[in-house]
Amino acid sequence: MKKWMVILMLFVSCGVSAAAPAAEDAATDTVTIWFARHGKTWLNTLDRVQGWADSPLTEEGKQVARYLAEGLRDIPFDSYYSGDAGRQQETLQIIRALQCDRSAPPTTLKALREVFFGGFEGLPNDEMIGAVVKKRGLTNSSQLFAEMKQGKLTLEHYLDEIAAVDPEKLAERAAEVKARMQSALREIIANAQKRGEKNVLVVSSGASILTMIADMTDDARKNQPLQNAAVVKLVYQGDTLKVTEIGNMHYVNAGKARMLQ
């Protein structure tokens, strides 16, 4: 009962002015971009490969998007972006609805899509992983994951391995994903500077977000999968772009705590 009362209060309070900007936004030339992974989908639940293939959010996926919205509630976002996948757009719609945001509609950028996994799209994840295991001469997926955990196999290398074993020879290589994602990032920053924006929220997908930051940080977390609704935060200031958070679930956890109290 308490949860729904909180949600109702969020809608009723739409006329309340936005919270004051966070201290990190005080500098006039600073732009903070919050990249969030979409909520859980049916293909996630079924453990199927989901790149350009798409599926709706599950109820659990919608709920985690609500938690994220509440956790980000005190941040005065100036603009919103998402890829053209339904799961990305649905996640952003939930966030904007619960934050009572009636500003200009979000911008959709095709470049913010998830990685394209070619002939593996829609198949069980085990089939794609198994093909990479075989190529690398390993015995099982546990050995593959151990290589990734130990830093012997980066996410970029893993995506290139998938492209190499794709039976249709259509899967994207890491360099292609990085190029389009960083192009979208440059566009987002340029738009923010032109409009005087300070905080931007972007909903995209896990592997594409991590590939985007692959050459921006040495943090080992860039090679670890993002949970649904996890946040990767970048701060652009004085022609310098820094990755300040990777895979942060604090916003989801804080939002959940507020909504269930």
Results as ranks from 00 to 15, higher is better:
113 R>N: 13
121 E>N: 10
156 E>F: 14
150 Q>S: 13
161 E>K: 04
110 K>T: 15
185 L>W: 02
185 L>E: 04
118 G>K: 03
149 K>W: 09
155 L>R: 05
183 S>H: 08
199 N>S: 06
176 E>H: 15
103 S>N: 10
87 R>A: 01
180 R>F: 08
91 T>C: 00
144 L>V: 04
106 P>D: 07
97 A>T: 12
188 I>G: 05
195 R>S: 00
76 P>N: 08
141 S>E: 14
104 A>C: 12
108 T>L: 06
180 R>Y: 11
107 T>V: 14
139 T>F: 10
72 L>D: 06
179 A>Y: 02
198 K>F: 04
177 V>P: 10
121 E>Y: 09
141 S>D: 10
78 D>E: 08
197 E>R: 02
105 P>W: 07
64 V>D: 01
176 E>I: 06
172 E>K: 11
192 A>D: 07
134 K>W: 05
158 Y>M: 11
77 F>L: 13
139 T>R: 07
130 G>L: 09
195 R>L: 01
89 Q>V: 01
164 A>L: 07
102 R>S: 15
144 L>T: 14
146 A>D: 15
140 N>I: 09
152 K>P: 02
150 Q>Y: 06
158 Y>P: 10
173 R>S: 04
132 V>M: 10
62 K>L: 08
178 K>E: 13
101 D>W: 07
195 R>I: 00
103 S>Q: 10
76 P>E: 12
132 V>Q: 01
134 K>G: 13
132 V>P: 08
169 K>L: 11
131 A>G: 12
